[in-house]
């Protein structure tokens, strides 16, 4: 059985490596990771940009660099040119009795006030140690936006694994090769498992690559694997049903894209909606997978929580399976 599962998987891998659309799907986790790294801010990133004159006050530059992104220019004219560009940056320019702030005028008040405060704190020689406020933190060590993007990408990757399965099934249908496979000692279970391997491995390796590239490599991989495997079940089911009901690659890919709707709904409900709306999304397996991934990425998830979330995803996928299994069985005949 395992021999045949392996043979079917290797065949699919070989065909996918020759096919442009499949190859593109295989590379998507890397592209996602690179894009997240490029566009999502890190934990120490700030949205405040300041422009100062180089060599005018080195002590002030070093002080401000601790709290903002500082760009240095040769003179006031260069700072003026820089400030006039589209992004928000505040110029801090010396005058006889101190400094004045230069802005475009369309920056948010918070940015301008933050720049004013930084300049005042420097002039008054105030440092973070002077604060009387006691710090109590929740132990969050990752930036929330980046975490959300990585979490959503993991779910996307698992759906793309289903798409990869659908493409391979469509190929079998177009070439009419399922009947030939049925005349070998390959059982239907071996065929289904063999066809599923590429989708599951893609979701696992794609997600792990994404985690390492985006700096989440130290999360509990076993917990993540559990959530990934149960989420992949749903993608596999949908991949099979779409592969068997569509006769060309484009329509199969288009049908699989429908899965992105519950995925996005699950993510947005958690990130945007209030507590009273959450219950309307309990039917959605992606909702629970997102919650599970979220605590794994925050390194705050216990095995108990992960088992509950993965159990809920498994249960909901099982319900989907009950509806889809007869169609899949018929399609493979």
């Amino acid at each position: 059985m395992f021999k045949r599962i392996w043979i079917i998987f290797i065949r699919d891998l070989k065909v996918n490596s020759k096919d442009f659309i499949s190859l593109y799907i295989l590379l998507i986790p890397i592209l996602f990771a690179v894009c997240i790294n490029l566009f999502a801010p890190g934990i120490n990133d700030t949205t405040i940009n300041l422009a100062l004159i180089e060599g005018e006050n080195q002590d002030q530059v070093e002080y401000l660099q601790r709290f903002a992104k500082v760009e240095l220019f040769k003179n006031t004219e260069e700072i003026e040119k820089r400030v006039e560009k589209r992004d928000a940056i505040i110029g801090i320019i010396p005058k006889i009795d101190g400094y004045y702030l230069m802005s475009q005028g369309d920056e948010s008040q918070g940015i301008v006030d933050y720049a004013k405060l930084l300049v005042s704190f420097y002039e008054l020689d105030i440092d973070t140690e002077d604060s009387k406020g006691e710090l109590m933190e929740f132990g969050r060590s990752v930036p929330p936006l980046k975490k959300s993007l990585v979490n959503t990408s993991i779910l996307f990757i698992s759906v793309l694994g289903g798409m990869l399965i659908a493409l391979n099934i469509v190929e079998e249908k177009v070439d009419n090769t399922i009947s030939a496979i049925n005349l070998t000692p390959t059982s239907r279970t071996s065929f289904v498992l063999g066809k599923s391997v590429i989708g599951v491995l893609y979701a696992v390796f794609g997600s792990i690559a994404l985690l390492f590239i985006t700096g989440f490599g130290r999360v509990n991989i076993l917990q993540l694997l559990l959530i990934l495997l149960v989420t992949s079940l749903l993608s596999i089911l949908v991949g099979f049903i779409q592969g068997l009901t569509n006769t060309d690659i484009i329509s199969a890919a288009a049908s699989i894209k429908l899965l992105f709707l519950p995925l996005i709904a699950g993510v947005l409900s958690i990130e945007i909606l209030g507590d009273k709306w959450q219950k309307f999304f309990y039917w959605n397996p992606f909702y629970w997978a997102y919650k599970g991934n979220d605590i794994i990425l925050a390194k705050s998830g216990t095995w108990g929580q992960i088992l509950v979330y993965s159990g809920l995803v498994l249960l909901l996928s099982g319900i989907v399976f009950i509806f889809l299994a007869p169609k899949i069985r018929k399609g493979l005949e």
Binding site: I7, V15, D175, T177, S179, A180, T184
Partner: peptide, 24 residues
């Protein structure tokens, strides 16, 4: 089969090689 049913993305040799490996 009356209607030929081989993997169009595999070569002739790969088709036979893959199919052969499914037997005991």
């Amino acid at each position: 089969f009356e209607q030929s049913n081989v993997y169009s993305k595999l070569t002739a040799k790969e088709n036979l090689h893959f199919y052969g490996k499914l037997f005991d």
